[in-house]
Design a protein around this nucleic acid. Structure first.
Length: 188
DNA sequence: AACTGGATCGTCT
DNA sequence: GACGATCCAGTTG
């Protein structure tokens, strides 16, 4: 199980080490296969302009969930690292609670259950009421990866500022990504 | 396969 | 008052 001290590291380290870990929410979830990193030096980050009521959790202690609502419709889940930084969880390979996820998502194929930040929040039943919850206690549970998977990096998705920064990390070759990488770039 | 527009509202300027 | 760290359905090629 990953404890809070795991998240007290540079956000780029956490982003890459979290690939292959298993995320469960009330026992439902799967393997993290796609994330993006954000920090306070980054114009695309919610934390760029300092603390506000919405992003206050990003400036709190590491190891908590930062949940926000986007486009008035979808929810997005982040793992808070050091103050002002967080990892956006963008896609899971579904493993646990397939039936519950299919029901919430409308009976789609398994590849489409959690292949995007809004989709996975819907599949797991995460919304604003879970903003600020600790990641090391129920309803959350995080298990470290048992085997190291090859990781690839690329530009982040859906942003206009900082669009070139290659802070999107994926499990190379996974078919559960929100989108394939534009150009596969192996990392280490 | 690639692009378009609509849904829908909290947040910050 | 404008704009999203999105998703989906529809159209076009």
């Amino acid at each position: 199980m990953l404890n809070k001290s795991f998240f007290d590291q540079p956000v780029l380290d956490v982003a890459q080490e979290i690939i292959g870990a298993t995320l469960l929410f009330n026992g439902i979830g799967g393997v993290i296969v796609e994330v993006e990193a954000y920090d306070e030096t980054d114009p695309a980050s919610h934390s760029f302009r300092g603390p506000t009521p919405r992003n206050r959790v990003m400036f709190g202690p590491p190891g908590h969930a930062y949940v926000y609502k986007i486009y008035g419709i979808h929810h997005c889940l982040n793992f808070v690292c050091r103050p002002g930084s967080a990892v956006l969880i963008r896609a899971l390979e579904p493993v646990q609670g397939l039936a519950a996820m299919r029901e919430r998502r409308g009976g789609l194929s398994d590849r489409q259950l959690c292949s995007g930040p809004g989709k996975l929040a819907q599949a797991l039943g995460i919304d604003l009421q879970h903003d600020g919850l600790g990641l090391d206690t129920p309803p959350f549970a995080l298990k470290a990866a048992e085997v190291a998977h090859p990781i690839a990096a690329g530009p982040r998705i859906g942003i206009t500022k900082g669009a070139e920064t290659p802070w999107r990390f994926v499990q190379a070759g996974s078919c559960y990504l929100s989108r394939p990488l534009p150009k596969a770039q192996p990392v280490l």
